[in-house]
């Protein structure tokens, strides 16, 4: 997994709340292999009409090189589809800043190296307003947990474990493989003490 330390990049203000995963990637695209690239599917129905023609949405005009997105509350709510993160990642987004995130989305984001940075609603509004006025890159520093844009700076919150995973680019499976013996011991004990946990075979 890619590490995340600091990022200075153009940021797209997405002044929407409850941006659910059905909007981030409509279900009809999820049967496609990842190798096809999921970037075009990001927020597809906001960006393209029936014929696939661009509607001139900000991601295709002023913010087509954005690597950071700023949104309102409850970003990534809804379905567990990791494809929502694939769409953001393949478009080029590496960090989403919002006052709150869908729980499964935030977990999926970190497992793909994308930073979900939680800020206060006031700081989100300040960033959205600022981005609307001037195009200026945002700097996100995960070590210091700060977001800087010109003379504006605010902190952000992320679970300490997720922060370390992103900073180090850790892969869960590598960590789990260190516990193979403990897993085997646990399995034997659980099935021994609680035999009902095994499905009755037909």
């Amino acid at each position: 997994m890619d590490k995340f330390t600091t990022l200075s990049a153009p940021a797209c203000p997405l002044g929407l709340e409850n941006v659910d995963t059905d909007q981030l990637i409509p279900a009809r695209f999820m049967s496609r292999p990842r190798s096809a690239g999921y970037g075009r599917f990001l927020l597809h129905d906001l960006r393209f009409d029936e014929a696939g023609t661009s509607k001139g949405f900000v991601l295709d005009t002023r913010y087509s090189t954005a690597k950071i997105m700023v949104a309102r509350r409850n970003f990534g709510t809804g379905s567990s589809r990791e494809a929502a993160v694939y769409a953001l990642w393949d478009f080029g987004i590496r960090c989403v800043i919002a006052p709150s995130f869908g729980d499964i989305f935030a977990s999926n984001a970190v497992k793909n190296g994308l930073l979900p940075a939680t800020v206060t609603p006031e700081d989100a509004e300040a960033l959205l307003q600022r981005l609307g006025e001037v195009d200026q890159p945002i700097t996100v520093d995960l070590e210091a947990q700060t977001i800087t844009s010109g003379n504006f700076q605010c902190g952000f919150v992320i679970d300490p474990v997720r922060r370390l995973q992103l900073l180090n680019g850790w892969d869960d499976l590598d960590l789990t493989r260190r516990h193979t013996d403990e897993i085997a011991t646990f399995r034997a004990a659980r099935l021994g003490a609680e035999p009902w946990v095994m499905p009755v075979t037909e």
Partner: peptide, 20 residues
């Protein structure tokens, strides 16, 4: 609880999950 594809893969391979 529901999980994403990375976690599904982890469960397939280990029958375990890391959680806080």
């Amino acid at each position: 609880f529901g999980i994403g594809a990375s976690e599904v893969a982890h469960v397939l391979m280990t029958q375990t999950l890391w959680q806080k």
